[in-house]
Design a protein around this nucleic acid. Structure first.
Lengths: 342, 342
DNA sequence: ACTCCGTATGAAACCGGTTCCATAAGCCGG
DNA sequence: CCGGCTTATGGAACCGGTTTCATACGGAGT
């Protein structure tokens, strides 16, 4: 190849103009004569010149990049959000810089630090639950960010998501309405996770509101993978005095229960009603199809991006956005009467 | 906040040294006295200073960033690869810049252009099947890249993946070995996709080798989503003279068949044997569990990253790496005798 | 005491864009 | 015919790191 990269000055020389003019053409400013613009564009096209974004970033102090750190992409829930975000951002001239934390807050911080060093214009973080040190770091460096996944109007930082407490409450209420009195609760780890916590509390509040007991041995804390979920489900099924229904705070956990019941020949919903939260793609494909709380994950992420893009553009955008959820009844829930009265 | 961002010169002033020295400390060079190093690090720590990666990138002409463009993250197959790549790269000081093309070559090119403009050190692209214009663009800009998903030793560009022809062949052979004579073929779109093409050809070659016919109406070309797969499966089941087995070039397609059969009461494998290629996480969870060709997707991506990291570091790495696959027999395949001889 | 060398540090140019400011040309009204 | 305004363009500083080259210093060798 030709010895060195070609830059704006080369283009300028070949087009017989000043670098400043080339820059103006590149940025579509209107203070350039039509004639000059065409000449410059011609040169750019024939040389296949692509301006150096790092140089531009250094100069204008913005990278047109949004960073995000999620626990893993290896989970339909996050993958779906990432996908939606990526698409929305690309359509608006931004690129997504992706980092994963593997559910480790320590690593999350390191990743955030890295992203900030790379001068992302803003960050998308899951949940509003972050260490003060991290928050202070972000504030100190003037990096805007938005929390996705939970609607937290009381938080001083922007957030987009659903009301997790209400979702947990709604899921549990559905079971109560069906007539269940013995309801178990399988929740994701709540440490450092306000969404899981909200859902669990919602379900508990529903139970308490209905005057129903929740014995210690009917509540389980579940790890992140599908295998963890199956493991826990197995433990649940081994319970001598089993509940007639369980609310799972994520669909993945519910999958675990459904699959494990299938394996051990326990029929759903006759012997056990199961409800999840999330409504992943698989939820309606699995056998029996999962009753769940549908969360518009893609919309949540899209709105988070929308918020950032607009507020970076100087717009005045509402700090908190609540996305709606809805109960989607499929085949894994039924009245306990079906089984008991038989 | 303090009026302006703090830079290396501020750190230098506060530590009473020259900017060059701070730079040396940051980069861990050894030509700095222990005493000075400690003083500088002290200042950096107390000020929470994070060096500007864009400035560094401009200066050293490398961003420690690897770009990739995949059709979508919204597919367990790609999500899994992305996830592995991200993790591996992070562990080696790189960050993944993610772009998606939505199965559109036009958009893919645009994304590549964008990534190149952002000065990624290298690219990971799916497959070796790219337009000459794109290849020329990459070459002209001196951007190294590696193809993932197919082992293509004859290609002038590096590749990491499995031998897709062999995978298709193996899958089909499994059905033939079981005694099937009427075998259908559900393949992903082959346009611009050498992997799908290889698998389809492999299956066809196996058929031809066994002297088995493949009537036009037993081969289907399937769209990308699970819903497309179900749609096609529905069409297959409507065939009056249906095959006794089908090879699907991806697990997602196989899922479609399995789910659609369950819906219409057709029992697998008694009435129809199904084999997929890929072995996604769901393949072993679905009912009945899917027989498939297991591809070490994560390993493929990890090796692709490994290749790039090492060759960027100046190492001399083998240009093509073939990952192994293996047949994983589960519950969706059986001898046709079971059904026919009854 | 003097040269020679290795080590620690500083000064300044450079990476490739952007943008402020200056300048020049063209046009209008008085 | 000239001042003043608008528009097109060029010159040069600047963004925040890195790196080359020069310099200063201390110690070893003779």
């Amino acid at each position: 190849m030709n010895g060195k990269r070609l830059g704006i000055r080369d283009i300028a020389r070949l087009a017989g103009v000043a670098p400043a003019t080339v820059s103006r053409v590149l940025n579509g400013q209107k203070l350039v004569s039509e004639e000059t613009r065409r000449r410059v564009e011609e040169v750019i096209r024939t040389l296949d010149y692509v301006p150096d974004a790092t140089a531009r970033a250094l100069s204008v102090r913005q990278t047109k990049t949004i960073g995000t750190v999620v626990p893993t992409v290896d989970n339909a829930f996050y993958a779906s959000g990432i996908s939606a975000a990526q698409k929305y951002l690309a359509a608006n001239g931004y690129t997504l810089l992706l980092a994963t934390s593997d559910y480790d807050p320590e690593l999350e911080f390191e990743q955030v630090r890295n992203l900030v060093g790379r001068k992302v214009d803003a960050l998308i973080l899951r949940g509003a639950d972050h260490s003060p040190v991290l928050l202070q770091f972000l504030a100190g460096h003037g990096v805007p960010w938005v929390a996705v996944g939970s609607y937290s109007p009381q938080s001083p930082f922007p957030s987009v998501g659903i009301d997790n407490h209400a979702a947990g409450f709604r899921a549990c209420t559905h079971l109560i309405d069906l007539g269940h009195r013995r309801i178990g609760l399988l929740g994701a780890r709540t440490g450092n996770n306000d969404r899981a916590r909200g859902r669990v509390r919602g379900a508990k509040d529903a139970l308490a509101g209905a005057g129903l007991p929740l014995p210690e041995h009917w509540v389980f804390e579940v790890g992140a993978g599908l295998d963890d979920a199956r493991q826990t489900a197995k433990a649940l099924l081994a319970e001598p005095a089993r509940p007639t229904a369980v609310v799972c705070t994520t669909d993945l956990i519910a999958f675990g229960v459904v699959l494990e019941c299938a394996r051990s020949g326990l029929s759903i919903p006759e012997s056990l009603s199961v409800i999840g939260i999330g409504d992943l793609e698989w939820s309606r494909h699995i056998q029996p199809a999962l009753t769940t709380i549908s969360i518009p994950t893609k919309e949540v992420w899209r709105r988070a991006c929308d918020f950032l893009v607009h507020s970076l553009a100087g717009g005045n955008v509402c700090q908190h956005f609540e996305c709606g959820f809805e109960l989607t009844v499929r085949e894994t829930t039924a009245s306990p009467a079906i089984a008991r009265s038989a």
